[in-house]
Every structure is written in structure tokens, then in C-alpha cells.
Nucleic acid binder design. Structure first.
Lengths: 233, 233
DNA sequence: CCGCAAATTTGCGCCAAAGCAACGTTTTGA
DNA sequence: TCAAAACGTTGCTTTGGCGCAAATTTGCGG
């Protein structure tokens, strides 16, 4: 039996990007940032946009999703406070590969490509940190691709909830509550299934006491049970 | 209708990693490399191994695959001559996230983590090049995840062949021949389907004149037709 | 607090593709 | 050169989960 894959990703925060940077470096970084307030539901950038910048969520939450030419949506990732997004575009063709939409009222900071490249050239550690962050995300996408190809819809939803719990969960008396407000469609689009299947499975779990769901705020009541669903072969 | 995603990835060669490096930089890089000959079928590293190094295929071809705890296999990528692999592990937890297996007799060069980090710190452009390469791969995995979630098995196989043609295709009178020798299982595992489905679809295409298949060497005879299969909504 | 719009639930039919088994073909290595 | 093993094909059966429609609940603006 092969080695089990590492649970991995941790929170990929902007703090990691500037890890090891001196006070003066941070000052230079802060000076070149642009800050914005984004209301719930508003798009921050759109797939194909060309003026790519590097973004960080200061407060709130963002959905990163791709929309196929047939209208099918897939959520690549949810971004919580402190995490980077939109950064990969800077290093490829400068076109954002996905949409970014605020799913709660959000504040985000961003940097121009030139400013970030300048920082990286002067402080190589920042560039190395960036590889590390992108590397984790690549590993996560590889794991998700494996799951899409080999696991059932139920297992994928379970795994998605476990990831979201690690990423943005808060411990409460009832269990781990996922802070981001998620609709059934969001759950479906990040698990690679349909609204209907996601609804059926979640109501089933709610009845079985695995999760509870109040006003789009999911709580994982039985973490071990959920893990078992995700891992059953 | 949303902007169509860029076809993207190009060949991600080691040349890109050292793009812009001076002759002296290259000399330092070459001096610290380790070279190995790997016979067809032999594993180069294994998922979970800890002594991660940065690898380049000098000649031959390599299959990067993950094996789930239930034995299910997924191919993440095939690596052709000139391309990097195994590099992401250096920047995450130093454990290879997948297996690497030679699928033809292969020569591979590799660097220790310390040597590569040293190079990157001294020549930040190399670090920036590395982000670019990993960024392209992340985008490619995101596209593949979207396809796994939203497209049919037939469309995914078509897309996989198109990618392989771009990556390792050679023009011949009969069309574009994919140089890597691929078994039905390889095709299935990179498209997220089964051996049986892959076989059925490929024999169908062979009958229709879209592809020909001689001794595990696939040739795309009708590129436009294949593209149409991949894109039909 | 009301009423409308959006989100969710649920029953049901259906199909793409997985799983299985049996058989043909190619490759390998001794 | 030949046999065994690996690989590929194909018919049949089974099923997870998609898609639609209709009913129900929730959330929001006024």
C-alpha cells in the first residue's frame, strides 16, 4: 500500500509571502499596495482580464472560479482573510485564469506586477516564498484532480468540507464552523458535482448528525465521521 | 459568454528555468548536477520519499502519477526531454507528492535542494523563472480539474491527446505523432476514466480516421476533428 | 411585517460510463 | 522459436448521479 498523501496545505497567508522580510522591506511593500473595499457579490477581477495584480484578502472572503464556454462553473478555491490570490497570473501570461468574487463584504490589497517583481529581485527570499505558496496550491489541485477522477460525489464533498474546516474553521461548542457563508451551489462547484446531489447529501448528513447548517454557515459536528466518509474505499 | 481560457502551457523546459542566466551561472549549475541513466519501467522516485531533488529529463520520458490508498492511479503529467519534474517538493514539505517512472529508457539530471536554493538566492531571476513554470503547471491542473468536473470522458480524452500533441508531438505525413509510447491505461489515467472506456473511444476514433495507433505510438490524423470533439458543448 | 425572489428540497426517469468476463493480439524473455 | 505474460477489445449488466419539475423554505427590500 502506498504512502498516504499528506493532508498538507495549511493556510497560505500573505504573511508567508513576506516571511523573513525586514521592517524596511515591509515598509516598501506596504507603500506600493492599493487598498479596496468590495461589497458582497461584487467581482474583483474576471477571467481573461489583462492588468493582473497580486492580491491579498485583508478581511472577508473571495470565491475563485472558472466558467467554461458552456456556462459550467467550477470553484478553484475560496480565499479567506490573510491569503493571497490572483498572483499566478503575474508569472504566466498576465491574464487572470479565473473570476474572483467577494462572497461577503471584503477588503483587499493588491500590488502591481512591477512593484512585486522589484521586491522579489531585491529580496530573493520573497520570490522563494512565492514558489512555496504556489507549490502548495499545485499539490492541492493535484489532490483534487485525483479525487475528481477516482472518488464518489459524497466522498468529494466530505473532503471539501474537511479542507474548508482546516482553512477557515472556528471551534464552537457544536463543532467546527466554516466561517465563509456557502450556498449549495458553492459546495457543488467546489466538489465537482451538481446542486441537487450536494443538497441531497448534505440533508442526509444533517439527519445523521454529521453536520449542521444554519443560515449558510456549515458546522462539522462529527469530524471523525466525516473523515471516514471521505476515506472509505 | 465568458472569455475562453487560454490554450496555454507551452513546453515547460529546463531552459526556461535558466532563462537569462549568464554563462558563469550555467557553469555553476552544471557542476552541481547529478546525472543518472534510468531503464524503461524503473521508478525514479516514489510518492512520500523525503530526499527531494529538482529533476530534469535530459533524454527519454517520465510518467508522474499518484496512487490512492485504494490503488486507483491518476497520471498528473508526462515529462518529455528538456522538462523539469519533482521540483515542487523542494518548496513545500520536501516529500515528493507523486511517483515518477521512466516510460522509455531515460537520462535524468538532478540538483540538491541546497544547491538550487543557493542558485536562486544568488540569481533571483532563476527563482522568478521557477514561479513561472510552477504557475503554468498550476493553471494546467486547474483546467484539468475543470474538465474532470464538467466534460465527458470522450471530451477529456480528446483534450488529453491535444495536450500531449503540443507537448511531445512530431509532425509526420500521417499527422502529429505523440512520441511517448502510451498504453491504454496511461491514456485512461491521464483522462480520469477507465481502461475500457479509453479503449472503446480510441478504437472508435481509429475507425473514424481521427487517429491512428501503431505500437503504442498515437498519431493525431485529424487535429481539427479532435479539437471539435473536445470542445463540443 | 409582508410579499416577492432566490435558494433548497425531493421524487422520478434516464443515461454515460464503470465493472465484469471472456477472448484475441502483441510483446517479452529464456 | 515458442510459451507465458501483458495488453487490448468487446458484449453485457449495473448503477451513481445528472437533469428536470414541482413543492417548500428562506432571505431581503421596502
Amino acid at each position: 500500500m502506498p504512502t498516504e498523501l499528506s493532508a498538507s496545505p495549511q493556510s497560505l497567508s500573505s504573511a508567508d509571502l513576506f516571511a523573513g522580510a525586514s521592517a524596511s522591506t515591509l515598509k516598501i511593500a506596504a507603500a506600493s499596495a492599493r487598498w479596496r473595499r468590495v461589497p458582497n457579490g461584487k467581482r474583483i477581477f474576471r477571467q481573461g482580464d489583462e492588468d493582473a495584480r497580486a492580491h491579498v484578502v485583508v478581511a472577508g472572503g473571495v470565491r475563485i472560479s472558472q466558467t467554461g464556454s458552456d456556462g459550467a462553473q467550477v470553484v478553484m478555491r475560496f480565499i479567506c482573510a490573510g491569503e493571497m490570490f490572483g498572483t499566478v497570473a503575474l508569472f504566466t501570461d498576465r491574464k487572470y485564469p479565473a473570476d474572483a468574487t467577494a462572497i461577503v463584504d471584503t477588503i483587499e490589497a493588491s500590488w502591481r506586477e512591477a512593484d512585486l517583481l522589484d521586491l522579489m529581485t531585491r529580496f530573493p527570499q520573497i520570490a522563494i516564498n512565492a514558489i512555496r505558496i504556489v507549490g502548495w496550491r499545485l499539490q492541492e489541485m493535484q489532490n483534487r484532480a485525483r479525487e475528481l477522477a477516482t472518488r464518489s460525489a459524497e466522498q468529494r464533498i466530505a473532503q471539501a468540507l474537511i479542507r474548508l474546516g482546516q482553512q477557515s474553521g472556528r471551534s464552537t461548542p457544536a463543532g467546527t464552523t466554516i466561517l465563509l457563508p456557502l450556498r449549495r451551489k458553492d459546495i457543488a462547484d467546489i466538489s465537482g458535482t451538481t446542486l441537487f446531489t450536494a443538497s441531497r447529501i448534505l440533508t442526509g448528513w444533517a439527519r445523521a448528525g454529521l453536520v449542521t447548517d444554519q443560515r449558510r454557515r456549515l458546522t462539522i459536528a462529527d469530524h471523525a465521521g466525516l473523515q471516514q466518509v471521505a476515506e472509505q474505499s
